[in-house]
């Protein structure tokens, strides 16, 4: 990170307390524009809770979240989304009963920078980007897992998100469409969007990300490039225990 460029997102000493337990403890990191970051860690390490607190679906117990130098930790989810913090859900956040077109139109209507007369053409552009133009009249619920994921990501881009938080974007996605998801995210990153991905597929993370954060029991234990993380003794200990290290 260049010292002159302020970070896009700055998380400082973040704590999330839920059900009598500290799910996220003292997590701090920052992200710059265009970065592609992976978050890994065993189940229950607090990855999704971290995303939920960043996007406003869970309250922060202590610490701060600064987005474009603005404190956002007390803002509701929709305000954070309006500022440019996009979220892609693990359980497919699409509107299944609506058509593919309507799903995208909702996103375009949410982007105040797109004038009304350009909405239809913008919808077509984004659907074309993810090869769903021919399926625009279909119910979104009839799409395959990979197509739903592509639609959801394209929708988040259409809203104007500058930072995309993607929770397991390859879950339920065929190998062929995994490549499409990765290409779409690389394309978004090339257009100055910052990508943060929670993922268990290390191959996908290795090909996509230039930095990986490792969470364990709610704490950020490692932060570095993929090669360094892959060869780290500590990561082996976290996933396989001391005996396998």
């Amino acid at each position: 990170m260049s010292s002159s460029t302020p970070p896009l997102l700055q998380v400082s000493s973040l704590h999330v307390h839920l059900g009598g337990r500290d799910i996220v403890q003292d997590v701090s990191f920052s992200l710059t524009v265009g970065e592609r970051v992976g978050i890994i860690g065993p189940n229950g390490s607090g990855k999704t809770t971290l995303f939920n607190s960043l996007s406003g679906f869970l309250p922060v117990s202590a610490g701060s979240i600064t987005f474009r130098e603005r404190e956002i930790s007390t803002l509701p989810p929709h305000r954070r989304a309006q500022l440019g913090l996009g979220r892609v859900f693990q359980n497919f956040g699409i509107f299944r009963e609506m058509s593919v077109f309507e799903n995208m139109l909702l996103a375009v209507e949410s982007n105040r920078k797109i004038p009304k007369r350009r909405r239809q053409s913008t919808v077509a552009e984004y659907l074309d980007l993810v090869d769903l133009l021919e399926k625009q009249k279909d119910k979104a619920g009839s799409l395959s897992g990979g197509q739903m994921r592509l639609l959801e990501i394209a929708r988040t881009l259409a809203v104007g998100a500058e930072l995309l938080l993607l929770d397991e974007p390859t879950a339920g996605v065929s190998p062929k469409l995994k490549d499409s998801v990765r290409n779409l995210l690389v394309h978004a990153s090339d257009n100055k969007r910052t990508i943060v991905v929670i993922e268990h597929d290390m191959g996908f993370i290795g090909q996509l990300c230039d930095r990986i954060l490792v969470l364990d029991v709610g704490r950020l234990v490692l932060d570095g490039p993929p090669d360094e993380i892959r060869s780290s003794q500590k990561v082996h200990e976290i996933y396989f225990g001391d005996a396998h290290a």
Binding site: S55, F57, H78, Q82, F89, G93, F95, L106, R155, V159
Partner: peptide, 20 residues
């Protein structure tokens, strides 16, 4: 459209910047 969307998935509607 927003009403239909939020009734199906309010979190997704919020993540589109909509005040549900």
């Amino acid at each position: 459209r927003l009403l239909r969307a939020q009734s199906e998935n309010e979190f997704a509607a919020m993540s589109l910047g909509r005040d549900v």
